[in-house]
Design a protein around this nucleic acid. Structure first.
Ligand SMILES: [Mn+2]
Ligand SMILES: [Mn+2]
Ligand SMILES: [Zn+2]
Ligand SMILES: [Zn+2]
Lengths: 132, 132
DNA sequence: CCTTTTTTCTTGACATCGTCTAAACCGATA
DNA sequence: TATCGGTTTAGACGATGTCAAGAAAAAAGG
């Protein structure tokens, strides 16, 4: 795992304590945290970091394609440290979002899309996680 | 097209001028309106209808499965008069959402889902509408 | 070092979304 | 008219996300 500092430098973003805290918070996550969850986590490393700085940094990281942003849940966008193509399953009871590997589905278009230029595709599933 | 009054009665919802205005506004739409867009439209038929009543009525209609609710866009949930299974294309420039017929895609799972009970599936595409 | 300039950060204000509550309203009934 | 249940309304509220204006920090230059 590369360090947060080197990741930021590599993208031409100046590393600061606040940005490092945000990067570490979002990249370490294996879930799909909201901005507010990242704020709480980042404050453990850098207690003074503000809401606006968290949003600014997350938007920067999305622009540089270091993380993804998914608008697939009510209420708040979530950020996604997994930038590989993949699908999502959303637990309607808990709101938890699970990554589904890309090759778990075969998605075949039966007709060509003439009017739309598709930049991103994913399968979204909603349901309940089975109690085990 | 059945009348709004009979649709409401059939679901055991008491028809009122406000509810009729909301039902007509959302069912006539061919797009994916937000609650606020429905509010503006409903006020043309019933100028005093309030925000709360629009939300209440829309939530009732979703409960009764007369319309769908899609959380696939940033900022606000959209409501969907099309309750058949279908996919969606989202224009990243305009925010417009287009219905894609269900049989336009073949979605095949390559492995069984053991841990998840899938209640809803759809393909979500994002991109740009081609200028014609 | 000291000063100036540029970049970054924080704060607080602001707009929007969606829910909730308490009071007003309204039609039916006695 | 008085009452009663269901409905609507306005406003308050909390959460999300953006923005502008300074404060702070870093860089540049002497
Ligand atoms: Mn954004
Ligand atoms: Mn709802
Ligand atoms: Zn993901
Ligand atoms: Zn639709």
């Amino acid at each position: 795992m590369k360090s947060a500092i080197s990741i930021l430098r590599q993208c031409g973003i100046q590393p600061t304590p606040q940005r490092i805290a945000v990067v570490e918070s979002v990249l370490i996550s294996t879930a799909h945290p909201t901005a507010d969850e990242i704020l709480v986590f980042a404050r453990k490393k850098c207690p003074t970091v503000s809401r606006a700085t968290v949003y600014n940094t997350l938007n920067l990281l999305v622009e540089k394609r270091l993380i993804g942003m998914q608008a697939i849940r009510e209420g708040a966008v979530v950020f996604d440290p997994n930038i590989q193509k993949h699908h999502h399953f959303i637990d309607e009871d808990t709101g938890d979002i699970y990554d589904i590997p890309w090759d778990q589905f075969e998605v075949r278009g039966r007709k060509a899309f003439e009017d739309f230029e598709i930049l991103d595709v994913q399968v979204i599933m909603r349901g309940k996680r089975r109690k085990k």
